[in-house]
Design a protein around this nucleic acid. Structure first.
Lengths: 249, 249
DNA sequence: AAAAGTACCGCAAATTATTGCAACATTAAC
DNA sequence: GTTAATGTTGCAATAATTTGCGGTACTTTT
């Protein structure tokens, strides 16, 4: 077998599976592992793939995670944010949660829209400062370093004194049976307070989070009035959520 | 499973749920927890995520990396901030105002110093998040778009319920005769509330602001306990302030 | 203060890489 | 056609990396 043939075959495998073990390649191509190793080394030098310990990985696969600046699943989140914005009319009083999806919501609020926005999130508040027609109210309290948002008794108390038209929240995990769950106890307390402070609660979640759960529960799914994913409302993945009186968007 | 594969999988999980336990990762990836720990350590070193006790959290849009704007008279402000920091001891409870000088103070707080910091400023709060030993409490309220800090009745009321050891404030204008003055009525109200909430008030001001005034008055100069400029305390420019019982630094 | 959970260190085993070398094939030159 | 030069391949010895485990130190929680 010619070297060129092998190179093409190797690139094929990598393109197909995103990753390949040298041992598998050696077996498949029926050459020694040393040869495969040398081949992969060359291909790596030519930037055709990335050689790693024990195998090779497709460039596309690795590059995707390199630009860390980019928000994970940004395009899906933009779809979600736009659906959420379609709910809003001038004069609405809303709450915007933290998290990247809610951040997109904040970012995509149109300039002309007149809103009053409550938030617990420093970054969301910063983002909203650019919106000429948005009144921003930060619900004070101790700031969680990890989540970059206000938590604690004071924040909860402050929330207890308001009632917004829409509360847009994210969640760490969501499951039709187990409801909205989180990793952090503190965060759960905040979600509960937000839900209580909202006439209508709108959940923003990318579909990848569906059917996952963690230790602490924020609420049941039917505590949510509207659920927005990047999927079409009729999508089969949402079937489990169709039973409850949830509006799917 | 290749190491790179795991790295990508870990970043996915972190991006998806913001936070994950090492134990969960170990189970999901079917490797020992030591391996996951080492992986997370590497990813942390590469600034792909943040490793925390027991798990990892997403950098997300945490990566503030705000372009260090050209701050006017930065070197003077650094001198002032360092003098201010010399007042602080472990366990102190302080308030930090908005403005670029106070921002420098926040930025230059040493890592080891254990503080509880109240603030009205979004940017100061963001800056303080990086300080491991600083508890950050944001005094909530409506956010002024220009000043990027909380103003209004709610914020003032919140301030009325606290008493900090040191209140570090800036001012728009300062004059020995006319005291501290501002351009904005709203801001003056906040300064007053901060002074009331501080056992000792420390004014941070570059010398360029000395002997200037504007329309609304926050307080008289002798309402200030300590005044810090970039000048040596014996400098003649400070003569007018030496009369009052102000400590010059 | 005690207990549980977590992190760090060093070690040994397993896996993978590298290197030098010999065998073989291919190419080029005479 | 023969020879020398070059390139390729497989092998073996050695080096490096990776991984899980045990012990210990450190954190957090109770």
């Amino acid at each position: 077998m010619l070297k060129e043939e092998r190179h093409i075959a190797i690139l094929n495998e990598v393109a197909l599976h995103n990753r390949v073990l040298l041992l598998d390649l050696a077996e498949k191509l029926d050459v020694s592992i040393d040869t495969v190793r040398r081949d992969v080394k060359e291909l790596d030098a030519d930037n055709k793939l990335k050689k790693v310990h024990g195998g090779a990985i497709s460039l596309g696969f690795t590059n995707k995670s390199l630009p860390n600046k980019n928000i994970y699943s940004l395009s899906e989140k933009i779809i979600i944010a736009q659906k959420a914005i379609s709910l809003l009319k001038d004069g609405a009083v809303i709450f915007i949660d933290g998290g990247t999806t809610c951040m997109e919501l904040a970012r995509l609020i149109p300039e002309h829209l007149k809103l009053t926005c409550f938030t617990l999130s420093l970054t969301v508040a910063m983002e909203l400062l650019d919106k000429e027609n948005v009144i921003v109210i930060f619900v004070g309290g101790q700031i969680s370093k990890e989540a970059q948002l206000a938590i604690g008794a004071n924040a909860i108390h402050n929330l207890s004194e308001i009632k917004v038209d829409y509360g847009f929240i994210g969640t760490g995990y969501v499951d039709a049976l187990h409801g909205l769950t989180e990793f952090d106890w503190d965060i759960v307390q905040m979600k509960k307070a937000v839900i209580k402070a909202s006439k209508k609660t709108v959940l923003l979640s990318i579909s990848e989070k569906l059917n996952s759960q963690h230790r602490y529960k924020s609420c049941d799914v039917n505590a949510i009035n509207t659920m927005i994913t990047e999927l079409h409302p009729e999508n089969n993945l949402l079937n489990l959520f169709r039973n409850n009186d949830i509006r799917l968007l």
